[in-house]
C-alpha cells in the first residue's frame, strides 16, 4: 500500500488520491458488482462520498485504505439495491427466460461470477488478497476489521467457492482429472 502523504481537505491531495487509487478501486468493484458499468458508477459515487468527507479524514488509516473502504461499502449498498430490483424483475418476468444485456461485456466464466455471488464482505477479502496482493493486516485496515477476522473471511470465502466451483472447474482441475471419477461413470 503506497505511503503517500495527504493533507485532509486539500483538493490537490484528493486529486492525487483519485489518480493513485482509481484503477485499483474500479477493478475491485468490477468483481463485487459483476459489471464494469456498475463498477464505474459505484467508483464515482464512492469518490464523491469520500470527497465530501475528505475534511474529516484522519491519518490513523492510510487514505488509500480509507477510500477503498468507502468504495466497498458503496458496492455493498449497490448489491443490496440490485437484489431488491432482481426480486421485482423475477416477479415481472414470471418464468420467462432472462435475456442477457448485449451492452455488458462478458466477464468470463465461473470465477468472477461466483465471486459476485458471495457476500460482499467475503468477496472483498478475496479480491484484496488475490487481485491486489494485500496482506491480512492491510486488508484488515481497509475493511476496518482485525486480522483474525480477515483470515476467517478468506477461509469461509474459499470454502464456499470450492463447494460451488467443484472439482471440475477450469484448467487447474485438468491436471488432476485422471485421479477423479467422472460423474458420468
Amino acid at each position: 500500500m503506497p505511503g503517500s502523504k495527504f493533507v485532509a481537505g486539500s483538493k490537490d491531495d484528493f486529486d492525487r488520491l483519485y489518480q493513485e487509487t482509481y484503477q485499483r478501486i474500479f477493478r475491485t468493484l468490477v468483481v463485487l458488482t459483476g459489471s464494469p458499468a456498475a463498477a464505474e458508477d459505484c467508483t464515482q459515487d464512492a469518490f464523491l462520498k469520500a470527497f465530501q468527507a475528505w475534511k474529516g479524514w484522519k491519518e490513523d488509516a492510510p487514505a488509500q485504505a480509507w477510500v477503498h473502504r468507502i468504495a466497498i461499502n458503496t458496492a455493498s449498498s449497490y448489491r443490496r439495491k440490485q437484489r431488491l430490483r432482481e426480486v421485482g424483475e423475477v416477479l415481472r418476468r414470471l418464468g420467462r427466460p432472462h435475456a442477457a444485456d448485449p451492452t455488458e461485456p462478458d466477464l468470463g466464466p465461473d470465477m468472477v461470477r461466483e465471486l459476485g455471488r458471495l457476500p460482499p464482505k467475503l468477496a472483498s477479502a478475496i479480491v484484496l488478497r488475490h487481485l491486489h496482493g494485500y496482506t491480512n493486516r492491510e486488508i484488515g485496515t481497509i475493511l476496518g476489521i482485525p486480522e483474525s477476522t480477515v483470515a476467517s473471511r478468506l477461509s469461509e470465502a474459499k470454502k464456499t467457492l470450492r463447494a460451488r466451483l467443484g472439482p471440475g472447474h477450469g484448467p487447474i482441475s485438468d491436471t488432476s482429472a485422471a485421479s477423479r471419477v467422472s460423474p458420468d461413470k
Partner: peptide
C-alpha cells in the same frame, strides 16, 4: 480434489 484455489484465484 486437485483444485488449487489460491492459484486459480490469482
Amino acid at each position: 480434489d486437485g483444485l488449487d484455489l489460491d492459484k486459480l484465484l490469482n
